[in-house]
């Protein structure tokens, strides 16, 4: 993994004395603390879900991009890894569209074609 260091990663090492893996580790630890803390902040349902999903995306990116070094490896490997997520996204869209209120319950600003009613 160490041989994959690119320009900004070298600069980071020269400036801080620690490589990208160390900083990735630190950020993952901090974001996990935020994740656990978010649940105890008495936030609303929407805000909690937003915090959990946002932190989850950042952590996912940190692990996949740097620990699994997809950031520097051949793009084909990224495509290989991302490919099954297409099916996962389709699955989630299916869930979203078939959940009661999943479409009709969206706020107006989410529905550009909304003209006051979804009834035909």
């Amino acid at each position: 993994m160490g041989e994959h260091q690119t320009g900004w990663q070298k600069a980071l090492y020269e400036k801080t004395g620690q490589d990208v893996y160390f900083w990735n580790f630190v950020f993952l630890m901090v974001f996990t603390a935020i994740e656990v803390g978010a649940v105890y902040l008495s936030l609303t349902y929407g805000a909690t879900v937003f915090a959990l999903v946002s932190v989850g995306i950042v952590k996912f990116f940190g692990i996949a991009a740097f620990f699994m070094h997809l950031w520097d490896d051949e793009r084909e490997l990224t495509y290989t890894f991302v490919f099954p997520f297409i099916f996962v996204v389709i699955l989630f869209l299916g869930i979203a569209f078939t959940t009661p209120g999943g479409v009709a319950g969206l706020p107006a600003w989410c529905s550009p074609e909304f003209i006051g009613s979804y009834s035909p």
Binding site: M1, E35, V36, A38, V39, T48, V49, L52, V53, V55, G56, K59, F60, I63, A64, F67, M68
Partner: peptide
Amino acid sequence: IEYYGLYWHFVDLAWVIIFPAFYLY
């Protein structure tokens, strides 16, 4: 070790999803 690490990181990655979804949400 690198290839083993890929597997181990994936286990970590799966936990990144499981933990908030099943433990916090």
